[in-house]
Amino acid sequence: MTQHSSEDLLLIEGFKQADTKESSFTLIVKKYQERVYWQIRRMVITHDDANDVMQNVFIKAWNGLENFRADAQLFTWLYRIAVNESLTYLEQQKKRSSISIDGSGLNLEDKLQSEKDFDPNKAVWKLQQAIQQLPEKQRIVFNLRYFDEMGYEEMSQVLETSVGALKASYHHAVKKIEDFILHH
């Protein structure tokens, strides 16, 4: 069974009480929103999209926290919702862009280049460009490992994938990024 932090347990218990529900949830949002936001932002790229997805994530968390079981950490659970919501959002955007005439909103690379401070000569942006070239699964694994410094065990709970497969995905992702950076 997963070890929960005592603070998280208190927050979950507080959420289940009617009089402390809102205050407990506010504290949960306050505690995890930034980490959740950046995970989403790296996936959907633009702030507006990330904001939409994050609101959906916490609305889902509000609806589901009542039945939250202690077989996963609160943060892992929130991350899983964030990943699923981000993927759903991107899928919806793909469908929308395939319908629309101009095909807008499809390419994450274009979105990246439209960022305010985008500079292709800077290493940080080049890294982001390299990440956008990766397949979806490898992109998520790389972001969780590289930026969020998440362990493989925890990652396997978030993505419901074996540790071995995650290690392989991460290895391939890093090699592809290296190749992109060296040849661009």
Binding site: W38, R41, H47, K116, V124, L127, H171, K175, I177, I181
Partner: peptide, 19 residues
């Protein structure tokens, strides 16, 4: 990361996005 790719390990880990 260094074992897999020293080049990627040496990249700056700063966040380029703004909110």
């Amino acid at each position: 990361l260094k074992q897999i790719s020293p080049a990627v390990a040496n990249l700056p880990k700063t966040n380029p996005f703004s909110v």
